[in-house]
Design a protein around this nucleic acid. Structure first.
Length: 622
RNA sequence: UGGGGAUUGGUGUAACGGUAGCACGACUGACUCUGGAUCAGUUAGUCUAGGUUCAAAUCCUAGAUCCCCAGCCA
């Protein structure tokens, strides 16, 4: 069930194809295929999996911040592979450093991964492998550390962090530690003391005895355990020594029987260590578990790919954290943030994020993606599914001066407006047309430049789904600002249709169509609309000065007080059942908007997700 | 300076010794009741220098450039 049959296969898919062909990872058995008796897709997938080659991936974030769009690539990649090969996908918290991790981040990450649709729950997801915590493996990791000490492959080192650093050596000269030949029995006693809390932070560490002269610094006797007297969000105060990433990660993968351990490029230098740790535990172990050390442990394959970077965007957790802490943005889910929760609140759909990650591909090349592609992916999706509505963001009043000619000047004419021109099945809705309307202030110009197709003195324009109107005059307030525009309408253009040919046989044409809403207080709906622009004005924030704050876009947020058509007051029958519950719309000629979580029935708040492509805006500026 | 990776139009990505293709962008034009969408077209590329070969983006040699590594972070 490959969803990418017509796409070239990327290098990780090719590796898995080869593994499946050679049977490298064995096959799903009755004990690990999943619940074959479960109803629905979960049971279907489990039954289909039985006897097929194993593919088991995972997404292993540290809960020290919110997930950002870069993480989405890793999630979609790992989950996508599990789905493509009918395997399993785990969410695992790599929570080995209590000093940086918090429950808030655990909760946020779970929310975001679920939002993307990477269902890790075996009860609900056909590819759900489960939710795991590295911290639940601490006891087993500790036992393996003892094993390495007994095998002469690890020792307790009493050098301070500073000393370790000083004695690490240089690329061409080896490092040293006076403790690396300490007897195993002594190290074993000391690690026990460390674990019991008899030593202060930094007093000693457990190190692997590998190669102090290796050109790969990761192999110069890396630290396995450090002493950290801190509460852990999951294990509380049960531990005061914590495993380092390198020591922990391979075992986490091994215990969960991950087949392909996919990570980013900066871990390439760690792969020899990843393998060394597992191989060292396996040394002396046997396939059947006979012998003093027991059964061999599973050895996954680490594969590295290039992470996602964007123009006009900052993605390092350190900097994102700073933006929140320094109040540059209001929160982790500020709609300007490149976090998944920011994108979600902004109105981006999960489908557009999936489309983007598939669009950019998977390689080992450090590429920088133009943020336009993210924006376009969002427009593409929303264009297909977002209900259309009319909203005037910066209103100016229009009075139809000949409205009384055809009857009661207070009458309301209900016009039919198309809900989605991309999807006829969505039908139409009624919008009220009245004597007084609002149009966009920028849709009128007293002295229009060339190629301005909108309203101007003497000019005629179509009011979308309404009537054609001709501007006959306008009023200014004392400051010279347009206060009111006077128009006549042509009753023969009802619904926006072309008028019949004139007596001379010529069909009158109009270049422009503009949107509008009724100014009648019974219809006009008021709302706050938050207009977002890019957070950074520079393609590479911080490149010039070294400080990304210098490139902040001062106009990344502006507030409009808009008037909306009345249909927006309630949920329309044409609105899709958004899986995340966020109502999204296209405001015609403006862009895509969603209802913000701050919105109340009495005081609606919208976020602009992304504007429409605007070729006039480009031309008029250029 | 030691080690590990990488390099194809403006951007991203295919081609795995045999026609350098696709997508996005940009630019034309058509159509249009969203200056949107859609449709048609144009544009532009193998880091450099040698070599092997009938044939090289692909193999070999040398070089250039970029990224990662000397945390008791992940």
């Amino acid at each position: 069930m490959s969803e990418s049959t017509d796409r070239p296969r990327h290098f990780i898919q090719q590796i898995i194809d080869a593994d499946n062909a050679s049977g490298k990872w064995g096959r799903w058995s009755a004990s690990d295929a999943g619940d074959t008796a479960a109803p629905g897709p979960v049971g279907d997938a489990a039954r289909a999996r039985l006897g097929k080659p194993r593919v088991h991936t995972r997404f292993p974030p540290e809960p020290n911040g919110y997930l950002h769009i870069g993480h989405a690539k890793a999630i979609c990649l790992n989950f996508g592979l599990a789905r493509e090969f009918n395997g399993k996908f785990n969410l695992r918290f790599d929570d080995t450093n209590p000093a940086k991790e918090e429950q808030e981040f655990v909760d946020a990450i779970i929310r975001d991964v679920k939002w993307l649709g990477a269902d890790f729950d075996p009860a609900t997801g056909p590819h759900g492998g489960g939710l795991f915590y590295a911290s639940n493996y601490f006891d087993r990791m500790y036992a393996w550390a003892i094993e390495l000490i007994r095998k002469g492959k690890a020792y307790v080192c009493e050098l301070s962090a500073d000393e370790v650093s000083k004695r690490r050596g240089t690329p061409t000269t080896p490092g040293t530690s006076p403790f690396r030949d300490r007897p195993a029995s002594e190290s074993e006693r000391l690690i026990a003391e460390m674990k019991e809390g008899r030593h202060k932070d930094g007093a000693m560490s457990v190190r692997a005895r590998i190669d102090m002269g290796s050109p790969n610094f990761n192999l110069r006797d890396p630290v396995l355990y450090r002493i950290v007297h801190e509460e852990h969000h999951n294990t509380g105060s049960a531990w005061c020594i914590y495993p380092m990433y390198d020591w922990a990660h391979g075992f986490e993968d091994s215990l969960e029987e991950i087949t392909h351990s996919i990570c980013t490029l900066e871990f390439e230098n760690h792969r020899p260590l990843y393998d060394w740790f597992i191989n060292s535990v396996n040394e002396g172990r046997t396939d059947d578990g006979s012998g003093p050390w027991g059964k061999k442990i599973h050895h996954p394959q680490q594969i590295e790919f290039a992470k996602l970077l964007f123009t006009y965007t900052v993605l390092s957790k350190r900097n994102l954290r700073r933006m929140v802490e320094d109040r540059i943005v209001q929160s982790w889910d500020d709609p300007r943030m490149p976090t998944l929760s920011g994108y979600r609140r902004r109105g981006y759909t999960r489908e557009s994020i999936w489309a983007l990650t598939e669009d950019v591909g998977v390689t080992k090349f450090d590429s920088v993606i133009d943020i336009l592609r993210m924006e376009n992916a969002c427009r593409d999706h929303l264009n297909k599914v977002a209900p259309r509505r009319m909203a005037v963001l910066d209103p100016v009043k229009v009075v139809i001066t000949n409205w009384a000619d055809a009857g009661d000047p207070a009458r309301v004419e209900w016009m039919d407006a198309v809900n989605n021109p991309e999807d006829e099945s969505k039908g139409t809705r009624k919008v009220p047309f009245t004597r007084e309307l609002y149009i966009e202030r920028e849709d009128f110009m007293e002295e229009p430049p060339r190629k301005f197709f909108r309203l101007a003195p003497g000019a005629e324009v179509r009011l979308r789904y309404g009537y054609w109107v001709r501007c006959t005059g306008f009023k200014k307030d004392p400051s010279g600002r347009i206060e009111e525009i006077h128009c006549t309408y042509d009753p023969q253009t009802r619904g926006g249709d072309n008028p019949p040919p004139g007596p001379d046989g010529v069909v009158r044409k109009v270049k422009g169509t503009i949107h509008w809403v009724s100014a009648d207080p019974r219809h006009a709906l008021r709302a706050e609309v938050r207009l977002y622009d890019r957070l950074f004005a520079a393609e590479e924030p911080g490149k010039r000065t070294g400080n990304f704050v210098d490139d902040l876009n001062p106009r990344s947020l502006s507030i409009a007080h808009a008037v909306l058509e009345p249909a927006l007051a309630s949920v329309g029958p044409d609105e899709p059942a958004w899986e995340d519950g966020i109502r999204r719309f296209q405001f015609e000629r403006h862009g895509y908007f969603c209802i913000d979580k701050d919105s109340k029935e009495s005081a609606m708040v919208f976020n602009r997700t992304i504007g429409l492509k605007d070729s006039w805006g480009k031309e008029s500026k250029g």
